[in-house]
Design a protein around this nucleic acid. Structure first.
Lengths: 164, 164
DNA sequence: CTATGATCCTTGCGACCTCAAGTATAGAAG
DNA sequence: CTTCTATACTTGAGGTCGCAAGGATCATAG
């Protein structure tokens, strides 16, 4: 009732029990890919991966505008994370704040003209990078399959069960 | 010659062109899973995901010993990252330094008795967590398939081509 | 032996992100 | 109106990590 937890290990047969599971590959691939993609994005467009992520979300939102809290949830950052990330984008003139008339608690993040331009500028090269490092490794069918498999993973905190 | 880059998007049909590709799911899943796993590992065993990662590598290495640089490469951290991570583990008494007789440049990282104990302690619960949040989402076959697909991704810096 | 270049490791610095705590607003109940 | 709870956002402190630079050691060639 143990030792069956790790499937697909020791594929290369190097070290005896060294785990090389789907999960470990997942971790390694993420580290390598984000490092490389981030670095390219940084050099060419002076953007973080997260910056780009936020820009994309806003770009596809109605009126290029989103509540900060929704933005945070959609890119899986905490509220404070979004505040600081947007601080940077605001300083760079890519995003602006906007008050909400019906609820004074909320603030909108809006893409500025410059932000839209930046986004469209960065898009092409970044998508090409993703394609090169990620997408091109798979056939269209495999890509769909991968997306389906990854789509099953939990996106939020599981187990809200906190008794005491 | 564009707009075909993003396959598998808008699966849920919510926002028109909002990308929901395999890559985006990959990013989101990673953020969510590492957050949750890290938090659990922290609470129960006072370990980081990276800490555990290093412990595992050492545990399966000959003599529970590895050159720091090899350790760094195998967990995909930089040399400085390993130095600081091991600082923590050394302070906690889980890992010790050891000189190399044949080459004074290299230092080994060795699992201490306490380190081995910690590793065996943490292993069970952490693997169970991984299984719950990750593995259990897939059949054995799907797991293998996922591992195979993820295994195609580049693990190091691509394109060493730096002309000037 | 000395110079050169590569490798291993550490350290200063900064970037990014989280948690915990605090402020402000909203809505519901008394 | 007042109180209580929930939500939105910000800020201070701290942790992890990469990059760049520097020191030490090794290997090789002159």
């Amino acid at each position: 009732m143990s030792s069956q937890v790790l499937t697909t290990q020791a594929v290369s047969g190097e070290t005896p029990g060294l785990p090389d599971t789907a999960w470990v590959r997942f971790l390694r691939a993420h580290a390598a890919l984000t490092r490389e993609l981030s670095s390219r994005l940084e050099v060419v467009h002076e953007l973080t991966l997260s910056d780009f992520d936020v820009l994309v979300q806003l770009y596809y939102a109605e009126g290029w505008r989103m509540r900060r809290i929704d933005l945070a949830r959609s890119v899986l950052l905490t509220a404070s994370g979004i505040t600081r990330l947007l601080d940077g984008l605001e300083a760079g003139g890519l995003v602006a704040k906007e008050r909400c008339d019906s609820d004074a608690r909320v603030t909108y993040a809006v893409l500025t003209k410059a932000g839209v331009r930046k986004m469209e500028e960065a898009r092409e090269s970044h998508l090409a990078d993703i394609e090169e490092l990620f997408g091109s490794r798979f056939s269209a069918q495999e890509r769909d399959q991968l997306a389906e498999l990854l789509g099953r993973l939990p996106l939020a905190h599981t187990s809200e069960q906190c008794s005491v």
